[in-house]
Amino acid sequence: MLDVYRLRLLRELARHGTIAAAAYACSLTPSAVSQQLAVLEREAGTPLYFRDGRRLVLTEAARVLVEHTETVLAELERARANVAALTSTVRGVLRLAAFPSAARALAAEAIARCRAAHPDLRVRLSELETTDSVEALRGGRIDIALVHEYSLLPAVREPAVETEKLVTEPLLIALPPGLTGGEGPLELASLADQPWIAASKDDALHVMLARACAAAGFEPRLDFTSSDYTVIFALVSAGLGVSIVPRLALESMAAEIELREVADLELTRTVSAAVRTGSRRAPQIATMLAALREVAGELSL
């Protein structure tokens, strides 16, 4: 009989390509993963991978197992959620992850509303960027992740994860007051000679900025990066450069800066709630999703 736990390890090996990376994703030691995969090979009665340089390549049999594993795990999530939904009590622990601007604009108020309505529900919040939170969601370490994607980048879909769009926000140009003169939307090309400031932890925003500037005919000169939007706004206010920032990040703005829409491109960031496929009917998850949906609907963007 094939063991679901070992099938999950095989799925992570397929995703990451090495025993060490799969072990890290599952919070296990490489030797433990190797031992479990060896047992799975005996259960399956066929080799599941072979070495090609530093990476492991899955056999055809392993790829078939991984494909079915996604279905099996989704159905198990759905079964657990449906059983849990039979009770009318919302209680226990819900693990939520969010990137900073979504934690501030969405998660805090949603958690407060859940606590008021369901005092037996305990919500734990972790601050994670999208890539890390999706990995944690897949690995079962969190239950809901607030994630984002940008308009110029192709959407990446995970079979093990389903998303619900909460809000689409504009990206705005942040620049020192009076730098360009005039009002209204601004063409990116007019800022080609300016130094640029970028968010250091958001790789997707880096790529989107590069693509937007390339579409405008130039390559941005990145002089500064920071993981803190208050620092980015302070750098802009000090006249050290310009930046592109999501609308939700403005909640942390204290410095004097000028904000302009982008004239020649429609640049947006979509914020979504992600859960493991099949799990959304679980009472804790359904309750938090409803609260996030409600808070998102009240935002003025």
Results as ranks from 00 to 15, higher is better:
R104S: 14
G140M: 02
A189I: 10
L106Y: 01
E129Y: 15
A210P: 06
P159G: 07
R115D: 07
A214R: 11
I144N: 03
I142V: 13
M208E: 10
L121D: 03
V156F: 11
A136N: 09
T163G: 08
V123N: 04
A105Y: 01
A210R: 05
A215G: 11
G181N: 09
E164F: 06
L137D: 04
S101Q: 13
K165S: 13
W196G: 03
F218T: 03
H206M: 09
R141V: 09
F218W: 07
P177L: 05
G140S: 06
A215C: 04
L125K: 00
A145H: 03
L153G: 07
A102I: 05
A103E: 12
A112W: 09
D193G: 14
C213A: 15
L179Y: 09
L121K: 06
A116E: 15
A108H: 12
E164N: 11
D193P: 11
H118Q: 10
L125T: 03
E127A: 11
G178T: 07
C213F: 03
S190A: 15
L153Q: 12
L152Q: 01
V156Y: 14
L152Y: 08
E127K: 12
D203R: 13
Y150P: 00
E187I: 00
P195L: 01
L205A: 09
A212H: 05
L121P: 07
I111M: 11
L121A: 00
A112L: 09
P177W: 05
A192R: 11
V123G: 00
L121R: 00
A103L: 12
G181I: 06
E183M: 11
P170H: 06
L186Q: 04
R138Y: 08
E219T: 14
V134F: 04
G178K: 11
S126L: 09
P185N: 07
A110C: 07
D120F: 08
A214L: 12
S101V: 12
A210G: 10
E135A: 15
L172K: 05
E127C: 14
G217D: 00
D202F: 07
G139F: 00
T131Q: 15
L146P: 04
S200P: 14
S126C: 15
E109F: 05
L128I: 06
A105R: 05
I173L: 13
A103K: 09
S200T: 10
S151E: 06
R211Q: 11
R157L: 14
W196V: 05
E109A: 07
L152E: 04
A107V: 08
A174Y: 00
L152S: 03
Y150C: 04
R104K: 15
R104M: 13
A215M: 10
S151H: 02
A103D: 10
G140D: 00
L128P: 00
A215T: 09
A112M: 08
E109K: 01
P195H: 07
K165T: 13
L179E: 06
L179M: 13
A145F: 02
W196H: 03
L172W: 02
E109I: 02
A215Y: 01
V167T: 03
E219P: 10
C213Q: 04
